[in-house]
Structure formats: C-alpha cells, structure tokens
Design a protein around this nucleic acid. Structure first.
Lengths: 190, 190
DNA sequence: CAGGGATCGTACGGATTCAAACGAGCGCCG
DNA sequence: CGGCGCTCGTTTGAATCCGTACGATCCCTG
C-alpha cells in the first residue's frame, strides 16, 4: 500500500482488471487490511523490542503463553499461540537451548509434555513485556480507546466465526474433489 | 482462544499475572486479535481454495499483485505483497518453475527484473480469484457491510501510522543500544 | 570519463512453518 | 489381559521467510 502506488491507483487497477467480475469489495479490503496490518505490526515489534532479545514473534508468543499460564501442556500452547504442534517442537527446542524454557513430564500421562519458564525466562519476560505492550500502544495510537475496542470486537467475531464454521465450510468446499496431498510433508515409508 | 481456555479464563490469568503492572488492555486485545484473525484467515483460505491449486498464501498474493498490475518490477511486487525481496526471489523461482510466472529484463535498466503472468497463470487467476473472494466474503460474514468498512478503515489507519512513524520509533528505541546482528543472515566472507 | 556511492536482484545461513508419517503411550471392550 | 483405536509429541521433507552479504549496474560529480 505504501510507496510506489497510492491506494487510489490500486483501486483503479483492481477495477480495470475485475470490472466485469462481481466482487465483494468491503470483504476484500477488510481481509487484505487484516493481513497487511498483522505483517506491519509483526515487523515493527520484531524490529524494535524483540530485536534486542533476539526473539522472533512466534518465540515471544510462546514464552508469553507459558508465562501467563505458569505451566501448560504443549498442545494447548500450540493452540493458544496459533501454530502447529510440529512448529512448536522446533520453537521449544530453540528456547530450551537458550535456557528460557523447560520441558517436564506429566505425572500420570506419559504422552504429555509440560512447559514452564526457567528463572532466566521469567526475568526476561518481566523486562520484555512492558516494552512489548508499549509498542502495542504505539501501534494502536491512531485509534481511540473505543475504536480499539470495536476493532478487537469485530476481529473476535471473525475468529469465532471461523472456529465455529470453518471446518464445515472447508469440508463442503473440498467435498467434490478431495485435494491432492501437499507437495511438501513427510513421505510414506516405502 | 478456542478449545481449552475460555476468553474469561484467559483474562483472569492475565490479570493474575500482571495485576500490578500497568497495561493498555484495549491495545493489547486489538493487536493480539489482529494477529489471531490473520492466522485464522490464512489457514482457512489455504485449506480450502488455495489447497486445490497447491499454492501458499504468499504465492497467491504474489500472483495477485502481478495479475492486477499486468507487469511489475520485483521490488514493487515484494513491497505490495508484504514480503522481503529475498523471499520473493524464492517464491518467483517456484512459480516460474510451475509455468505460472515469467521474468523479463527491463528495457533500459539492466538491474531491474519485470514479472508477468504466463497464459497459464492468467487462466489460473481467472478461475481462482472468484473463489478466493468468496472465502473473503465468508470470513467477513459475521460483520455488516458498514462494520467491514469500519474495520478496514481502522486497520488502514494503523498501517499508515506504522509506515509513517514506525522507522523513527524504532530508531529512537534502539538508539541507546544498537542491536547485535541477527543470529541468522549471510556471514561475511572471511 | 573515471570513480565512488546508491540501488537492484540474488546467494546464503539459520530459523520457522506446515502437513503428513511415525512411534510411544493410554483406555475401552471383549 | 490382549488388542485395537485414539491421542500426543516428534520427526521428516519441502517450502518460506528474513536479514545480511554480494556482484552487477546505474548515476552523479569532479
């Protein structure tokens, strides 16, 4: 949206290209702006607060979730952090290697792994979180308190809608032709 | 936010953890919901429409940008798509290998590379985009037209704010202690 | 017209990311 | 109590992704 083309020019180009195709414009703008804002925010925060601690956004979110809940099973951490469990394994490996996170066994269920911050991780979060929240405030600065709250409400409605109805929607969309397996992913043992 | 813990429980846990630390709650909720919504939307669309074409979100956005502008220099494509130029090189390599995208030289400036869709890529986008927009509509379904427009406006304000003032903010934040180089990144030739 | 600085796309290194496969462990049911 | 199905975390393969370094090219100035 920045730099080379103005918003108006982009709108015009889209109209030129799609003039005869019926499009939901508000939905398109809303969705594309969600993604654009998310990217911009992530890059701003990674480039400022998280940079000093050499943490990625994902690594910080994982630390944050574990910090808030004191101790948590990995599958719940992955869900709250919005990443797959396979990704979490790698992130935890990195954070554990840096001495910020510990893995523990569950008392009765041998399959489960519990995560907890180390003392060093605890210290880091106590330092880092206020600075992180200060950047969240900076990001939301152009909005009033009520606008921020309204924004959060609308987004929550979208998230809950997708969590409630997304599966059914995807199933019905793919019902006619089950998709081919992804190009990537582990291959069956031959 | 789904599944294991309710929103209320999460709020309580945050309060318990941060009760004595002054926090901007609306900003925190707005930012975290932006990211959460972006992830949920991306996963929904990748799992439905893009899955059949075996495209990632990023690959689709790159195709979309090039499609809209007919022909475009790579640096502008990267900027519009919200990815780094290095990432774009890899994505273009993949798309070119699949015969969806072509690379051309600039007429007068030997450094520039222009991107353009092939006929096959054009056909794919004509098929794919209506389905993509239908999912955007599905995503925005819980919001009224006016709410969607308001959402887009608020997000745009955030993006423009970050583009305008983000650099200065990051500079002033890192002024005291310039950050160490990232752990990753190409190593200097020895 | 020589050369130094700026800009462009690419190569590279390390970390992340997902989907699928896998193995270990749990629990129900006969 | 034995086995079958389920759940969990990890592994694996391919693709992204970013930041930095680099070589090529352009442009400006002396």
């Amino acid at each position: 949206m920045t730099g080379h083309h103005t918003l108006g020019e982009t709108e015009q180009a889209i109209q030129r290209r799609l003039g005869d195709v019926p499009i939901r414009h508000e939905a398109m703008m809303a969705v594309s702006n969600i993604y654009r804002a998310a990217t911009a925010i992530r890059q701003h925060v990674e480039g400022s607060v998280l940079r000093r601690a050499d943490l990625t956004w994902t690594a910080f979110v994982v630390l944050w979730v574990v910090w808030i809940w004191e101790e948590m099973e990995t599958r719940h951490v992955a869900e709250e952090a919005g990443i797959s469990k396979g990704t979490l394994t790698g992130v935890v490996r990195t954070l554990e290697g840096r001495g910020l996170l510990e893995r523990h066994q569950h008392a009765t269920d041998g399959r489960l792994v519990l995560l907890r911050l180390t003392a060093e991780g605890e210290t880091l979060m106590c330092d880092l979180f206020p600075a992180f929240n200060a950047e969240e405030s900076f990001v939301a600065a152009p909005l009033s308190t009520e606008e921020s709250a309204s924004l959060a409400r609308s987004l929550r409605a979208i998230v809950e809608h997708l969590e409630a109805d997304g599966d059914d929607r995807r199933q019905s969309l793919l019902a006619g032709s089950p998709p081919p397996p992804r190009r990537s992913g582990r291959r069956p043992r031959l």
